[in-house]
Simulated scan of single mutants.
Amino acid sequence: MISKKRWLLSVVLVVLVTVTACQSQDEMTRLAESEHEGNGGFLWEVVHGDTTVYLQGTIHIGQEDFFPLNTASEAAYKRADVILPEIDLNALDIEEIQPMTMELALYEDGSKLQDHISPELYNDITELLSMYGFDMQMIENLRPWYVEMILTEMIAADAGYDTNYSVDQYFLDRADEDGKEVQALENFEDQLQMFANFSPQLQEETLSAAVNDREELVDEYTNLVSYWLDGDVEGMLDMETENEEFDGYQEYMSQMNDARNMEMAAQIQQIFEENSGQTYMVIVGTMHFILEPSIVSLLEDEGYDVVHVY
């Protein structure tokens, strides 16, 4: 999807699948060989040498009744020694990230938002913000990419979904509770830099989509959640195909998907080369596993056997 969101979540009580901790790899039944049920699809398993990596596709919004997830994902988490998210949200220091964010989100040359977008789009934003009880003065110094992030969070709430119930944060909070090691695949500053470095034309275009296609985006959120809960790969890919129409699609996807997938796949490959004998669980947005070049296909190209579990 065009939209981009932050990910926050509350701890939810879950029922875990019991797995005996002392089982060896030979004794352990691979998740792919058993039946599973429950919410949320998009789980892959890669075994190489003495090391196992689970690839869990997530969405960055949710509802409380998502959890617990399907038995395969719960079992994968239970077995994992190390959790690998895009960003370790629980390790972020607000005092550090606020000035970093504002440095990239604010115009520092004295110009304002209305100086960088069309008058028509500026008027549309004014009308939309008034519906939410906001005054334009609150965002007049912000760049388009950050205004879009604010608006898409509002639209997600309109659709009935809460960033406080993202699948990513669900596992991160549990990892903290259980004392599991967490190793982030990306860092917060790099993600901010990516958004801020999109061309002015692309920033205006994605902002325009968030403003003028608000009702369609509400429907997209509903479809996204439905496809994710059902593990519907084709449904999610069809949603992305619809987005190919906008002019900056190639620029957007080369940074949002392609470059990031290559870097994350390289890090996973390094884990296999180290062959620590541990079990890892990667938790990143589902599109990173199904949209080409995907993390799954990149690992397969390197000769790894990637099994779709659920």
Rank of each mutant, 00 (worst) to 15 (best):
M1F: 03
M1S: 09
M1A: 08
I2A: 07
S3K: 08
W7C: 15
V11S: 15
L13Q: 13
V14F: 10
T18F: 10
T18E: 10
V19R: 12
Q23I: 11
S24F: 01
T29G: 04
A32D: 09
E35P: 00
H36L: 15
G38L: 07
L43Q: 07
V46L: 10
D50A: 13
G57N: 01
T58Q: 00
T58M: 11
Q63S: 07
E64Y: 09
E64C: 10
N70V: 00
N70C: 11
N70I: 06
S73N: 08
A75M: 10
A75L: 05
R79K: 08
R79A: 04
I83M: 13
E86W: 01
E86M: 03
E86N: 07
E86V: 07
I87L: 10
D88G: 00
A91W: 01
L92P: 00
L92T: 03
D93M: 07
D93N: 13
I94G: 13
E96Q: 14
T101V: 08
E103R: 14
E103F: 11
L104C: 06
L104M: 12
A105F: 07
Y107W: 13
S111A: 12
S111I: 08
K112M: 12
L113D: 05
D115Q: 05
H116E: 14
S118P: 02
P119T: 01
E120H: 12
I125T: 06
T126L: 11
T126Q: 10
M131R: 15
G133M: 14
G133E: 09
D135M: 12
M136D: 08
Q137N: 10
M138Q: 09
M138Y: 06
E140P: 07
N141M: 02
L142E: 06
L142C: 13
E148R: 07
E148Q: 13
M149V: 07
T152Y: 06
E153K: 14
I155L: 06
A157I: 15
G160L: 08
G160H: 08
D162G: 05
D162V: 02
Y165Q: 02
D173W: 11
E177R: 14
D178F: 13
Q183E: 14
A184S: 15
L185M: 14
E186V: 12
E186W: 03
Q191N: 11
F195N: 08
A196Y: 10
F198P: 00
L202A: 04
L202T: 12
E204Y: 08
E204I: 02
T206E: 06
S208M: 09
N212C: 09
E215A: 14
V218M: 00
D219C: 02
Y221C: 04
Y221F: 15
T222M: 15
L224T: 13
Y227G: 02
D230P: 06
G231Y: 03
M236N: 02
D238T: 07
E251V: 01
E251R: 02
M253G: 03
S254I: 02
N257S: 13
R260G: 03
N261P: 04
A266F: 04
Q269T: 12
Q270C: 08
Q270K: 13
I271K: 10
E273I: 10
N275E: 00
S276D: 13
Q278I: 05
T279P: 02
Y280C: 01
M281D: 00
V282P: 01
G285N: 01
M287G: 03
L291V: 12
S294G: 07
V296C: 00
L299V: 03
H308G: 01
H308K: 11
